[in-house]
């Protein structure tokens, strides 16, 4: 099953919030994660746990979101553990490797930061349909139109990319199956053959893209698109819950800042 984004089809308060507020929350949390000290880390972890409870998302689902990035997190941890400055630990197995206690602590912190960023982003995609994210980004960029930022074109591009992502995944699958059916691309092939196969696939997908792009551009134009602002089925409007969310967000940011100054 192809799942471009992990949208959760549930009706929670977070689903109904204005997507702009949620994007703002992602920024606040990300900034908090980067600037966090120990107190901030506790506060942020608690906030993320609260959101998970609100969404009724269990630890296994969260782990699944983070899992693809685990090798990277592990690498970051090891880099910190080995190369951060500090007194080397005198444990039998690790002696002489240059691993320091400070390094381990820093590595854990960096791993936590990374996991938090991933979780935060997952919460956004779990509660917000891709089209809403695109609409929100368009509205956020809208004031920049005067500076020549083509906000509608950017949003249109993003939305077409999201629309065709699953189509491409299916196409890749088809090409791979077709090759396998003709006896190519098994796991026993050498690196060279696999590389050639990957190159062929890339060329095929790319050619398909160019063919599709021309037709798509015509269709978009024929349907009256000319980069002008357009209306959508869901109006973005700040309502009561959004205001409450904004206040919560402001308090949270204030708490983090206070923790940073006095903590």
């Amino acid at each position: 099953m192809i799942r471009p984004t992990g949208y959760l089809a549930r009706e929670t308060v977070l689903h109904r919030l204005d997507p702009r507020i949620k994007i703002l929350a992602v920024f606040v949390l990300s900034a908090g994660v980067f600037a966090a000290n120990a107190a901030g880390a506790v506060l942020i972890t608690a906030a993320l746990a609260a959101v998970a409870c609100l969404l009724r998302v269990g630890p296994s689902r969260l782990l699944a979101e983070v899992r693809p990035m685990v090798p990277l997190i592990a690498l970051l941890f090891l880099l910190q553990a080995f190369f951060a400055e500090g007194k080397p630990v005198e444990v039998p197995l690790l002696r002489g490797l240059g691993v320091s206690l400070q390094g381990i602590r820093l590595g854990l912190f960096v791993g936590w930061q990374f996991a938090c960023l991933l979780t935060t982003a997952s919460f956004l995609t779990m509660t917000t349909a891709p089209s809403e994210i695109v609409a929100a980004i368009e509205r956020i960029l809208h004031p920049l139109r005067r500076l020549g930022v083509p906000s509608r074109d950017l949003a249109m591009g993003a939305s077409v990319a999201l629309r065709f992502l699953p189509v491409y995944l299916e196409e890749l699958d088809r090409i791979r199956t077709a090759r396998a059916a003709r006896g190519g691309g098994g796991p026993r092939q050498g690196i060279g053959a696999r590389f050639r196969a990957a190159r062929m696939t890339a060329v095929q997908v790319l050619l398909g893209t160019f063919r599709r792009a021309g037709e798509l551009a015509d269709a978009i134009e024929a349907r009256g698109y000319a980069g002008q602002p357009a209306t959508t089925l869901r109006e973005l409007r700040i309502a009561g819950p959004d205001r409450i969310a904004l206040v919560c967000l402001a308090l949270f940011a204030a708490g983090l800042t206070a923790g940073r100054i006095w903590g």
Binding site: S159, R212, L216, A219, Y225, A230, T232, L233
Partner: peptide, 20 residues
């Protein structure tokens, strides 16, 4: 190659949406 919306109803709304 002419469906640009991410859902069916969003796609149907694309043309009239462009009309504002």
């Amino acid at each position: 190659h002419q469906i640009v919306g991410m859902t069916v109803e969003e796609d149907v709304a694309f043309g009239p949406g462009n009309m504002g």
